[in-house]
Design a protein around this nucleic acid. Sequence first.
DNA 1: CATATAGTTCAAGCCGTTTTGAACTGCATG
DNA 2: CATGCAGTTCAAAACGGCTTGAACTATATG
Lengths: 190, 190
Amino acid sequence: MKGYLWENTASNDDPQKLLRPGKLLRWETVAVDAVGNVIEFWGFKRNQGRVWALLYLRDVALTAAEIERELELSKGGVSMLTRDLEQWGVILRVRTPGDSAWRYRAETDLLQMARRVIEQREFSFISRIRADLEEARKLAAADGKTTRAQLERIERMETLAEATEKALKLFLKTSRLDVGGMFGVFRSTR
Amino acid sequence: MKGYLWENTASNDDPQKLLRPGKLLRWETVAVDAVGNVIEFWGFKRNQGRVWALLYLRDVALTAAEIERELELSKGGVSMLTRDLEQWGVILRVRTPGDSAWRYRAETDLLQMARRVIEQREFSFISRIRADLEEARKLAAADGKTTRAQLERIERMETLAEATEKALKLFLKTSRLDVGGMFGVFRSTR
DNA sequence: CATATAGTTCAAGCCGTTTTGAACTGCATG
DNA sequence: CATGCAGTTCAAAACGGCTTGAACTATATG
């Protein structure tokens, strides 16, 4: 499923890289953090975005240790972050012949991941809410003391949740169209 | 601006209400919490949604003390929550002739509030991100060591942020249309 | 198979946000 | 103008999510 490919890795031709203190260039820091912020906005972890952005900007397969140094993250953290990103299919794990360590490279754009996860995660969340409101309405209806007006108000709240769900759906569909060209865009440099 | 109206309050005709331990009916709890969840999803505080929902369901002006008991919140908490909700214009503060305490009642639907706040808060956030990416690109361009391919990748990230902003805009516009009937819907029971 | 290094797991700690509650201010009433 | 209740403020506590790092497991290599 996830291919274990042999790829060029840029760091082999720079022996110093293994020793040098992780230090992003200024512009790399700014860009990486900006992506961290967007992705956080979409409900993911800031550092998931930062890791992806680093790999994407460098366009080279980095080891966990390198990511660790560059972004000043812990060993365990990098392990978990890369696992998530790999599961979502936005980074790829590759094995280099000489090297005994895995390397990671950016695979696809982040919106794809955002959409995928939002689709399952957020929709189940919203439909859960709708189910709760439906339950409330049924309970209220069963209770003799509930007035007609109260039942109506619960129904209106259900409308609210439905509208939210509908809007969210439309949002996703839109972002898919909107970003349409993106699939190609992100792949073209590679 | 915010009218200080005289309104009917239902609790006066039920002297026990002042003494009874705050205890929502089961269906009220379910409904109130469901709304708390939706609103949290929109990036607000869970309890802001719960307070609004309680007022909306009861369709009666409640005092801070009553809200406090029903939702098991602290005095200070209710004060802050009602202040926020009133500022956003989704609840109204009313003064009753006999009573010396303020009462609150639900005024408009929550989506209105969500939209309003999202419009200012989220957009400034996204445009901030776009500005950061632009800065990164300029810095990278000024740095002689940056490759053409890297500049392109930053540009693609900017496209990503732009797409996000665009999608968000469309989402808001959509939710406005989508919910169109809502303005009337929420007002008709009152 | 021994050793070394890479990678994973998870309890504990950290940090930002929300909530609490006690002290305080303001206001109505006698 | 004294009393008591309503309402606000804010420092501290509680909470929740994220990250860390030490212990552990897996894997490559001689």
